[in-house]
Amino acid sequence: MKKKDPDLLLFHAPLLRQGMTTPRAMRDVIYALLPATGAALWFFGLSAVLVIGSCIAGAVLAEVTFAKRETRGESLRDATGVLTGLLLGLTLPPGLPMWMAFLGGFVAISLGKVIWGGLGHNLFNPALLGRAFLLATFPIAMTTWVPAAGGFLDVYASNLALPFMQAQVDGVTSATPLGMMKFEQEVTPLANLVLGRTGGSLGETSGLLLLLGGIYLWLRRDLDWRIPVSILLTVVIFSAVLTLFDGERFPSPLFSLFSGGLMLGAIYMATDPVTSPVTPRGAWIFGIGVGVLVILIRVFGGLPEGVMYAILLMNAATPLIDRYTQPRVFGRGVDST
């Protein structure tokens, strides 16, 4: 029944050919993440390579295993597996055992993408789904933050834990700026936050480089600027209002902006074209929703960081947002007066 090579190709408009393709967009995002990945290597050395590499390997393996025989090459060429692995890797703690990172990458693609019907059909961002799985499965390893490595070749012993075995955490652990804020009311200096000299996930430490990549993506027209702008604006406004009430208890707007995974999430994950609304109005609603949820979870919830759950929750609301923000069809529904 299924013909691989139909004689007549049927397409709907637009028929204009342009350079914008899925593989190109994916590659652009990967390029945009390179500075932040470089920073991860700078701060955490070879461990960053091991963790990110394991994620990408797991993601690509899932991609190959579950792809249909006919489309296997295609699904590899569009680089979504590599991108998902890279994004996931950047959200993980640097001392995570490699086997967990590998499992996370595998789950991200298999449960986050393939099971929904492949690229374009998934409801949730695959990288964040993989991270949510890891956080629920290995809560201790996922919240153990190690300080930046001494030299480039120093590898955390916990990275090399045998599969299915616990990580032996050597020496001191450090807390993330958000964790210190939440549990010990300790504020990290802003300069450290902007440059990335803090404890935290591989890619979330340097706000500045992430912003740089975001601007590149915007110039290349690869992302809807409304989403990151509305998320970041909402976070700033919301936390400014809270600070006015009680400057002691609530974090300042700049702290909220540059701490945790907000930059990474707002620029690279919330903007995933598959799982965010298509309409401009929908993008604003989506962004505001993520921003409000981030602050609500960080300030009033039981967890120090809320970007992941905020984006996943708004992913789930995306079909609804799209439905209610459909633009009016030209010539229809106009008042006759």
């Binding site: 799985f133 499965t137 834990a161 299915f164």
Partner: peptide
């Protein structure tokens, strides 16, 4: 699997 097994809490 002995003492060092890392449990998959989610399960």
């Amino acid at each position: 699997f002995g003492e060092n097994f890392e449990p998959w809490v989610i399960m």
